[in-house]
Amino acid sequence: MVVRGCENRSVNALVVEKQKSRENLFLIGVPCEGILDWHKIVSEVGEAVTAVKEDGQNLMVETRDGYQLLERADFLHDSCKRCIHPNPMSADILIGEPLPEGDPNLARTTVENFETQTIEDRYAWFQKEAERCIRCYACRQACPMCYCEECFVDHIEPRWTESGATPAGMQGWHIVRAFHQTGRCTSCGACERACPMDIKMTYLTEKLNHDMRDKYNFEAGLDAQSQPPFAAVTLDDKNRFTVRGE
């Protein structure tokens, strides 16, 4: 497998969850400079785009009427802009020169922009994003960590959330989807890239990722051994929910 930083983390996280066997994989690592967001290019240049060429830090956009030069860094996907670990950390071989690590403070901005709002504003934001959902589940299908044979939304008895594109159904999907990622999300941003409705989702998962970092000093996928804090159960766990009585 050819992997970028985020994909290497996802492979590690899947190995931890016993979905992949590391011995059966040979990882060819590629340091990643981020993926271009064509939505951003089209909204800048318009419908007439016919081709885009990468040229160092520039983008050469060919249109029906001529050419346009754009700066590559401005047209990256949001998750790539704030990427902390662009280098694959446990590849069997690495192709190309490692890139400098990203700025963790930059990665915080999405969460901080959200967290610093009032509770009413946060709910309004959440509603506005979630309620554009058409329940196509592109976010789930694109997510490297969503591999359940039966997703909670497809479960009939009990039904966990309203089935359709109703406010309750859409909010239920987005909140539970995010919570299922606690300590598991590898910040690849595939969910937002796949969404046909441009719904922001990473402000929720990144918030959970930050909590994991702050409270448990844990980041998903940095190695292929560490269990997500909420999945690591030991018999001498000091919380009582694991063992009845005592």
Binding site: I134, C136, Y137, A138, Q141, A142, E162, S163, A194, P196
Partner: peptide, 24 residues
């Protein structure tokens, strides 16, 4: 193919629907 519903949901001629009981 990812197996998501983008192509069908955004398709102007796709019309399949599911029927579900919403108990509440």
């Amino acid at each position: 193919c990812l197996g998501c519903g983008v192509c069908t949901f955004l398709c102007p001629t796709c019309f399949c629907f599911d029927i579900v009981d919403e108990t509440q």
